[in-house]
């Protein structure tokens, strides 16, 4: 389990990560979602021991990163953004170097499996600078797998890839997710949705929402926006306000005889509104409902006030 408790990191005046706490349980694929500059990379750099947080603690399986960095780092494989590798080395030289540094004694036993799993067998003897961006990511992922760490941290693993490569790398991550605990960051909502079992939305150095994908989705999907336009009828709109599930109601426009309200509700209330209109003898001219998408909520959460 990765346990992060109140970590903070500042760069001069800028607070990149502001007292963030969370836990990652074994077997989860956690998507760290947020706009560029929200603090995703800095968070990941602290979890992997690259940066030391100014406040707060990080524990990997109970091992404190600040107290025992080497033991903690052994348990985490890290793929930084854009997979920065030693380009002048061959894939073979590079992976052997990483295996040396991670202190893997029986690499001939583990390397073939990793190469096959990441699809690198064919390019094993090529120089890294010769490889496409997709293969760079694969080498970067292979590097994380050496030493068989339980936790993999990947910073924007599909950024800059073409659509085919994105699908391939996503499949690879999904496959790895069967045996490993994975944390990926992304600024693309669909990616977090496609890959992760749990999503944390991070914005302006703080976590603004979190939950399992289904939890987040159910919260969001149950919310609907309803536009109601009717001949002016105060009793009717007063009645609508009292319908269970109505969260927010505001008048968006009013014509000569008509008024339009935008109603945010939990669940679909259009039937109830219709029945209310019948009871109050109101003349409805529009009843239109819109689903609130995950995208809307993401934008709402990460854009409010500046």
């Amino acid at each position: 389990m990765i346990k992060v408790d109140g970590i903070t990191k500042r760069f001069g005046e800028l607070t990149a990560v502001d007292s963030i706490s969370f836990e990652v349980e074994r077997g989860e694929i956690v998507g760290l979602l947020g706009p560029n500059g929200a603090g995703k990379t800095t968070t990941m750099r602290m979890i992997t021991g690259y940066y030391a947080p100014e406040a707060g603690t990080i524990e990997i399986d109970g091992i404190n990163m600040a107290d025992e960095p080497i033991a903690a780092k052994k348990r985490v494989g890290y793929l930084p953004e854009n997979a920065p590798l030693y380009e002048e080395m061959t894939v073979e030289e590079y992976l052997n170097f990483i295996a040396d540094v991670k202190g893997i004694p029986n690499r001939s036993a583990v390397l073939p499996g990793i190469l096959e799993g990441t699809g690198l067998t064919k390019v094993y003897n090529r120089f890294i600078w010769e490889l496409s961006k997709g293969y760079h990511q694969r080498v970067g992922i292979a590097q994380t797998l050496l030493g068989d760490p339980d936790f993999l941290v990947m910073d924007e693993p599909t950024t800059g890839l073409d659509p085919n490569q994105i699908i391939e790398i996503r499949n690879l991550i999904r496959e790895l997710g069967k045996t490993k605990t994975i944390m990926i960051s992304t600024h693309i909502l669909q990616e977090a949705e496609a890959l992760s079992t749990k999503i944390m939305i991070i914005d302006k150095a703080r976590i603004v929402a979190r939950g399992s994908k289904d939890e987040l989705k159910s919260i969001l999907e149950s919310k609907e926006t309803l536009y109601v336009t009717a001949r002016r009828n105060d009793a009717f709109f007063e009645g609508v306000k009292k319908i269970p599930g109505v969260l927010e109601m505001q008048r968006v426009s009013s014509g000569e005889n008509t008024e339009t309200y935008k109603i945010l509700s939990k669940g679909n209330i259009s039937e109830a509104v219709f029945r209310e209109a019948v009871n109050r003898n109101a003349v409805l001219s529009e009843l239109r409902s819109e689903k609130v998408s995950l995208e809307d909520v993401f934008i709402q959460l990460t854009r409010k006030e500046n």
Partner: peptide
Amino acid sequence: RTGTREILFTMPVS
């Protein structure tokens, strides 16, 4: 410049 130190410094090495 290339960012390779990010992998280097997260290896189990002092």
